[in-house]
Design a binder for these strands. Structure first.
Lengths: 250, 250
DNA sequence: CGGTCTGTTGAAATTGATCAATACCGGTGG
DNA sequence: CCACCGGTATTGATCAATTTCAACAGACCG
């Protein structure tokens, strides 16, 4: 899995950036100037690199916060093609980023990136738009946690992950995708217990809506799932995404 | 309440921007060039102004999302001095902004603001840093919702609001502040029922930790409250905030 | 083949929701 | 000044969703 294609991350990053902004291939090409500084992380290894930004090349990462008594809150996942800053706003940070399984990142020095942004305003804009997309995902997370039931939360999250993986070409044609995340972590993401996550998947399986084995998910009936939770596809939010499909009566 | 001071919003905005970035008074002064375009909103009136940014001059606003069956999820509050973009990423938005009570905003056209940012990179940086602060608050919201109990959620939110109001000089010297928010809205913010919000306040009152009347809150024992929920003061996150107080053994 | 990590299942315990009645508070009009 | 009104908060009783605890089953790995 790790190391399957050396340049995929660039394509993925560009795909995302071009969806949220009007960055051209040509403008993006400037990033070729960056030294490809790769770093591999083991499962649950903390990714700490002040002064750098990370682009996920392979695997998943997660941002989380721990409480003194051991409770863990998982804020979001970063999937291949995602870019994020690793510099804490201020040292003494309480939230961390770790690798979900084995993961590989491309590290970009803040200074190098700022140089590129200064030279290419379009790139800077694209990056800010990407940050706004991140904020939107966090909003989804708040929606799930505040007013959706456990059943709805799981569905909503699966749809969002599927949606995001689709943007970077990592979902299968049969609505399937890899989700290398143990139930315990999903629980910490959705504010539930691992036990209830398990029960919810069982229910979804019984209802024929979702198939799931270890690390593999197949959405058997995306349309119904979308309706159940009123899921708002990311395409609707991307300035340069395709228009909403016909029949959207909302 | 509304209209008590005509220029306060500038001071408040500057105070916040200077805390998250190294914006100088002088650089900020450029915003004086903006026409002061005020708009008043009635309680729960939807604030819609594509192409504009809003600065809260007076009152509170809230961003929320409604579900088809009437459930409401409140994402965050915007307090006096807060600046935020009112342009939806794409039309057909599902989340809205409304006024909590009576509120007054200063509207700034996106174009005007971008002009200022182009002329003053420091201002642009400050704005982006402010956006990052917003994301951080959303992270707090996720923490509350995912892994804190009802009791802890209420405390954590009160501390955050107090903290934010302090940044713009709107909290009283006795740890008191105005919170013009009905229980129902707090419930929609914290993923609880209005009834349980009420019970939780009663408990906090009985424990002598918090005093609360309609729209007025007094934190009787901030230190204890902070400890209960491991609240991380914003100062710790602000690049230019004062250093953490001594005795922080964390 | 044993060890470890992850998922599943059942029973009991808990947190918080819901429903419904009542109290309160601030304003308004008589 | 008092009576009434609408909105909001409080209280009690009951109900439901989800947690916890604990045991067991599967998968993967050396």
């Amino acid at each position: 899995m790790v190391g399957d294609d050396a340049t995929g991350w660039r394509d993925r990053l560009y795909r995302k950036l071009s969806l949220v902004s009007s960055l051209s291939r040509q403008e993006f090409a400037q990033t070729e100037a960056l030294i490809e500084n790769r770093r591999a992380f083991r499962r649950d290894e903390i990714i700490e690199a002040p002064g750098y930004m990370g682009v996920v090349r392979d695997g998943w990462c997660y941002r989380y916060r721990l409480l003194a008594d051991g409770r863990r809150s998982v804020f979001n996942f970063w999937l291949p093609g995602d870019i994020f800053r690793l510099t804490p706003i201020k040292p003494g940070l309480k939230s961390s980023v770790s690798a979900v399984g084995e993961a590989e990142l491309v590290m970009i020095a803040d200074g190098d990136f700022q140089g590129l942004c200064a030279a290419s305003p379009a790139l800077a804009d694209a990056f800010h738009a990407h940050e706004r997309l991140d904020a939107l995902l966090l909003g989804n997370q708040v929606l799930r946690l505040s007013r959706l039931t456990a059943y709805e939360r799981v569905i909503h999250l699966l749809l969002e992950l599927w949606d995001r993986l689709n943007l970077v070409g990592l979902a299968g044609p049969d609505h399937s995708f890899e989700m290398p995340v143990p139930h315990t972590m999903l629980a910490d993401m959705l504010g539930l217990s691992n036990v209830h996550i398990s029960r919810t998947f069982t229910r979804l399986r019984e209802e024929g809506l979702v198939e799931s084995r270890r690390g593999q998910v197949v959405l058997r009936d995306p349309a119904t799932l979308i309706e159940i939770v009123e899921y708002d596809p990311l395409r609707n939010w991307l300035p340069n995404g395709p228009p909403a499909p016909a029949g959207n009566t909302d």
